[in-house]
Design a protein around this nucleic acid. Structure first.
Lengths: 244, 244
DNA sequence: CGAATCATTGAGTCTGGTCAAACATGGTGG
DNA sequence: CCACCATGTTTGACCAGACTCAATGATTCG
């Protein structure tokens, strides 16, 4: 096993030096197990720590007054999670495990140490923040201006791509690992309507579903229906400072 | 005039050293004027530069296939804009001026220099990125899970707060400076429906409108209607590395 | 003063929500 | 192995919030 899951993720983008790898490994010295369904961080409760997600699938979400939930983001191994804890006393979002997970908690002072000692890593972390930011604005535009069908299609494509990033063996068939209610909470729809949209996509020959697995039959058409752009591709990182 | 608009914004959060102020001033050595209505950066076109917004109100937005527009964010003096240009060759979002503006373009290599020489500023920039990220997720939740009235109310509160941040003299009355179509494109509604929601807020005694100005009559009720939290307040920055 | 942009209002439509029931699935304990 | 329960999926009938289209006022600007 690699020393650091986060280093592995960053290593996809740039060649890390031994010193950088060592610094990143320090973020993952401790581990904690989180059971499927368990809540790692509740909304509006103090958040002293940040985490690296090492294993499993998690989500961040908020609950509204009327009890409805908006899922903000799905979290994959290598993701830095609970980052808003860096600047707020109480967490603006909740973190929960969708599968059994392993997380590595670390103190926020570790981050400032990273910034001092490894400017290139700091810049890289900020670059990945930007990727996340752009992915969020894509979803914002989807919620504001696209149809229910397009939002569901976009979610399927995004999940497939992110699952594939972790497991290169994944092709056009994958296990979504979400209930239709969760898909609805991510796309701003009801579970019932998600079901109808999945059916439409299936009837249109864009996807096939069987036994909890989903196959993308016509990726081009699905991308068109979804207005989807993969933001994790083709990053320009030539401007990064030199490694230390 | 202060050397740097960005320094002024950061200076609201921490006491900057002379060296830091000087480094920030280098981001704003050049200036460019942008006319009201002009587009500084088109979507999907190469974006070589980043900018500091020095004067005026701008917005970032995306256009969808069907011609509709989603406004992602309104931009105020001191904001770093076009940041996604840091990692993508082509801009994922457009930038346009809502009033006559002054911007300060700078190269992305300037950023890496900042990261190397001023780790505290790098951390601070990242912290402000997080504020922006959380503000975006608030809007995501609003678009996904709240009513039209709530979204319009949230926009009013947010614009008032951000205008007040720049001009402390602003109280409960302010000039919104947006057309109802722009409000709609920011909230995922049509201009017609925005008009009806404003009317409802006015009839409910929450706001008053006259001659393009808006007065918040019952801030508590408006906050409640909007589910609004000001994310620009109460940041915890004690963990920042020491200044250089 | 005319043209253009923006705000307002009404009538009718449609996308997506609500409610409720039936159906599938999988895990559990007897 | 099977009955049972909990959870999740599917489907139908109906409803409502938000959209569309269209017309009329109000402002602003040249």
């Amino acid at each position: 096993m690699v020393a650091s899951c986060f280093a592995e993720l960053l290593g996809e983008r740039v060649d890390l030096t031994a010193g950088e790898v060592a610094a990143l490994a320090r973020l993952e010295e401790r581990t904690r197990e989180v059971r499927r369904g368990a809540i790692l961080q509740r909304e509006n409760e103090p958040c002293g720590e940040l985490f690296v997600l090492r294993r499993g699938l998690m989500m961040s979400y908020v609950l509204l007054d009327d009890g409805s939930r908006q899922i903000l983001r799905f979290l994959f191994p290598g993701d830095l999670i609970g980052v808003p804890g860096m600047i707020y006393r109480d967490s603006p979002e909740a973190l929960a495990a969708l599968t059994d997970c392993t997380v590595c908690p670390f103190e926020k002072t570790m981050l400032s140490q990273l910034f001092e000692e490894h400017p290139r890593l700091a810049a890289l972390v900020m670059a990945l923040n930007q990727v996340e930011r752009v992915a969020l604005t894509d979803r914002l535009a989807a919620l504001g201006r696209t149809s229910a069908k397009a939002r569901v299609a976009a979610l399927l494509l995004d999940m497939r791509n992110r699952l594939r990033f972790a497991d290169k063996a994944i092709g056009d068939t994958f296990t979504l690992g979400l209930t239709q209610e969760e898909v609805g909470d991510a796309t701003g729809l009801t579970a019932v309507h998600v079901n109808r949209m999945l059916r439409q996509l299936e009837e249109g020959g864009l996807i096939r579903r069987e036994a909890g697995r989903c196959t993308i039959l016509d990726e081009r058409a699905l991308r068109r229906a979804a207005n989807y752009v993969d933001r994790y591709e083709r990053l320009e990182l030539g401007w990064l400072p030199t490694a230390r």
